[in-house]
């Protein structure tokens, strides 16, 4: 598992990368009440805002961590946004991306580095 400074987690699954937000981020956001996902098939560029998350407090964005194509999104979150608070690093993944350039992965943090980052 790799982590971005935007509090996303990235998990390799075959030739895809599964992306969600960390428990720490979910806790900071508070109760999530709305998630807007991109459509499967969308080509995205790294750092593009592709997911909107609204909590009871505020709106925030999730950025594409890599260039590539969104191949699958977690539609469950549209109907059950609160899953982000219940299972941020499991069932509440946001999308799976087929990366066209994996090199940014080397710059992302491992778990120990992320724990230091949020400490």
């Amino acid at each position: 598992m790799k982590y971005t400074e935007e509090h996303e987690w990235l998990l390799e699954e075959g030739d895809l990368i599964v992306v969600g937000i960390t428990e720490h981020a979910a806790e900071q956001l508070g109760d999530v009440v709305f998630v807007e996902l991109p459509e499967a098939g969308t080509e995205v560029t790294k750092d593009e805002e592709i997911v909107v998350i609204e909590s009871v407090k505020a709106a925030s964005d999730i950025l594409a961590p890599l260039d590539g194509e969104i191949v699958e999104v977690n539609g469950t979150l549209t109907d059950k946004p609160g899953l982000v608070n219940e299972d941020a690093e499991g069932g509440a993944w946001f999308f799976k991306i087929k990366p066209s350039d994996l090199s940014p992965m080397d710059d992302y943090m491992d778990e120990a580095a992320y724990k230091d980052f949020i400490a």
Binding site: G30, D31, V33, V56
Partner: peptide
């Protein structure tokens, strides 16, 4: 306090 551990919704 903006919220307590229970959270705004609860």
């Amino acid at each position: 306090p903006v919220q307590f551990p229970a959270g705004i919704m609860a």
